[in-house]
Design a protein around this nucleic acid. Sequence first.
DNA 1: AAACCTCTTGCGGGAACCCGCAGCCTTGGA
DNA 2: TCCAAGGCTGCGGGTTCCCGCAAGAGGTTT
Lengths: 246, 246
Amino acid sequence: MRILIVEDDVLHRSFLREVVERELPDVTELTEAQNGDEGIALAAKHRPDAIVMDLQMPNRTGVEAARAIWRQEPETRILFWSNYADEAYVRGISRIVPPGASYGYILKSASEDRLKLALQGVFVEEQCIIDRTVRGVQQRADDRLQGLTDAEYEVLIDIALGLTDRTISRRRGISLRSVQSRLQALYEKLGLDQDTDRDPDGAAIYNSRSRAVSIAFLRRLVNGKAIEAAELDYQTWAEATSKTAT
Amino acid sequence: MRILIVEDDVLHRSFLREVVERELPDVTELTEAQNGDEGIALAAKHRPDAIVMDLQMPNRTGVEAARAIWRQEPETRILFWSNYADEAYVRGISRIVPPGASYGYILKSASEDRLKLALQGVFVEEQCIIDRTVRGVQQRADDRLQGLTDAEYEVLIDIALGLTDRTISRRRGISLRSVQSRLQALYEKLGLDQDTDRDPDGAAIYNSRSRAVSIAFLRRLVNGKAIEAAELDYQTWAEATSKTAT
DNA sequence: AAACCTCTTGCGGGAACCCGCAGCCTTGGA
DNA sequence: TCCAAGGCTGCGGGTTCCCGCAAGAGGTTT
């Protein structure tokens, strides 16, 4: 079995190598990458059967790397090993996992035993092993009542980028009013209420738009990495449309 | 010499303990804390001479913990050991370091040798040792032309929290127009220009307010932790004023 | 088939924001 | 002493946002 480790932190990387070598006897090749880009390159070169992937990395997120790799080789088993269970990651992953692929999501705070089990389970038994707390986030995201729909999440990202309603409507191909409807839905689900959030003079305390982004950060629906990735997406779109317009 | 290690990651913590024990011979007591709160508590209990402090932690940031500890014991030597050189951290630290105190700021990506030197330098020689890249951020922040003034940074945080101009003016004790002046200055320094950022129909592409926050995230002027801390500050203020108003 | 739900869209108005203009202070030099 | 620089402030107006109301399209349940 060929294995690739993608992890930027030195200590975590050597720890992973050690555990993998100890727990998986039939490893024939073990490669290490220090960031997402290198991970993609090495995956293309070595064609690993299984990958341990950090999520928070410079250059490319683990999510982006995983998408690229799975596009080349959908059978690859990937175990995500991350510090956090941010919804931005969870949502990103469940969006890209190929049908039938086996993967895992385990937190770095988990015990070494849990890590061993996950390595065995995902890489050998080809199970899907998702950490309890991650599973919780996943379910909340799936739940239409409490979680955000894709449309709402999309518009959340767009206002987090600082786009106007107008720009969003152009980008997403919907009317101005629809953008605002989605925003309304978003505000409501995030618990914003312009009527109750009033100061003594009756003026609004919060700017709904900015407050929504703030709450999204506090609740970890998005994080800095998600914004960076979205910014790239947006710039790509902006260039493409400015060309076709010319 | 009594030493305290404040670090949430298990691997990093044990690595630190090992290096400290090996490099600093006259350590009489070595304590470990797993987050900011525990760090403050253990510092109060053990009165360490020197502390190695992670910045990104649950419960309390390293910056907050350091502030609390320095308030009790301004002589404490603190070596900050962090993944990033985000301006939010750098600015936060330079704001709270007591006059004459010796501290250090070193990145986790630095070599073990650099870590050893920093430990020796800060804890024994009582020097200030700041990592090159951190120093760069620090200087840019100090430079009034390129960096943000405290007033501008303050208003940036406030809009990142989602406050309205009105609320900001009440909170900061200045007029509505002044808030907007500061915002104007902020927008300009962040490179926003409503006149150039126009779509083919002449409408604005960006919502300046939200875009400013987005850019601040992309440039790492702020990060998720900074928002969390600011939210607490704000809630405290909000409660206090609602009481006095009653 | 009728009732229902969800999403989209137009209209309209009040609130909040963005910003140019201009006058007022304070501060720190020439 | 006078002047210049920079921050604070009021005014006014154009833009954008927020959201209630209501109508229609498309899919689902009963």
